[in-house]
Design a protein around this nucleic acid. Structure first.
Lengths: 129, 129
DNA sequence: TAGATTCTACTACATAAGTAGTAGAAAGAC
DNA sequence: GTCTTTCTACTACTTATGTAGTAGAATCTA
């Protein structure tokens, strides 16, 4: 398998890297909302662990600080996450969708988009894009 | 807050209880596919822990075995899970939906249903229920 | 009722995840 | 060139999670 599972904090750190691009520990740390900002060394530790897992890598040095960048794509990781979650629900999407709609997480546009995509898929089913 | 977060295994155990209704440790254990079935005492331990968290409770005894039942609803737990997931993605639903469609997790029916619900909500917006 | 079976109630232990402190090296400020 | 700041590289500790063994009580079976 391409890469291991990421925990919540790890994912937050990756989010920072995906958003900011290559960054230092400090930059990642400061990406956390002040209220729930972990200590500098906490972020550092997590980054080191992610490095060990090959999920990110150090690309260069600026001043005395290392600069890190993501080594896996946001999409790949998200897919993995979603699959895990669905696995837990045993694929029963109905309640999931219902909740998304009720909480306004899903817009009509999102849904229409999905519908369009589904239609396309249906039309070309059997083919491997 | 009503109840704590559940880990993956814990969730699987709850799934068993939601599906089977009040059950013994043995019944829950046997709900796992043979290949990845944890030891009896593993399930027992998890059930005890869930009991400590008040997520389930023992309701009676049959023979020398305790019978447990869920003390929180499947819906409530699922909602919580979904919200967590979204939080991690920072609410960006588009990739989530895309992935669901691509992997066939979402049917056209699911989507149409959501669309209908959204329309209803839009029509009655501002109103509660 | 004696032996076999099944459970309970504990205990134990490994790995992961979250959190952070410390010592000393490097760089920046003047 | 010294003083200050900032980082790195370790180390440490706590809680959660997954996993399961053991001793002895309770129940079932002949």
């Amino acid at each position: 398998m391409p890469f291991p599972k990421l925990s919540k904090l790890e994912l937050q750190i990756m989010e920072a890297l995906w958003t900011l691009g290559a960054s230092s520990v400090r930059e990642v740390q400061e990406r956390f909302p002040e209220k729930k900002r972990p200590a500098y060394t906490t972020v550092q530790t997590m980054i080191y662990r992610l490095e060990a897992k090959r999920v990110l890598r150090r690309v260069k040095k600026i001043g005395n600080a290392h600069i890190f960048e993501a080594a896996v794509s946001r999409d790949a990781v998200q897919r993995r996450f979603i699959d895990e979650l669905l696995g837990l629900f045993d694929g029963r999407m109905q309640p999931v969708m219902a909740h998304l709609v009720e909480t306004g997480k899903l817009t009509l546009e999102d849904v229409r988009d999905a519908e369009k995509r589904l239609r396309e898929l249906a039309a070309g089913k059997g083919r491997k894009e």
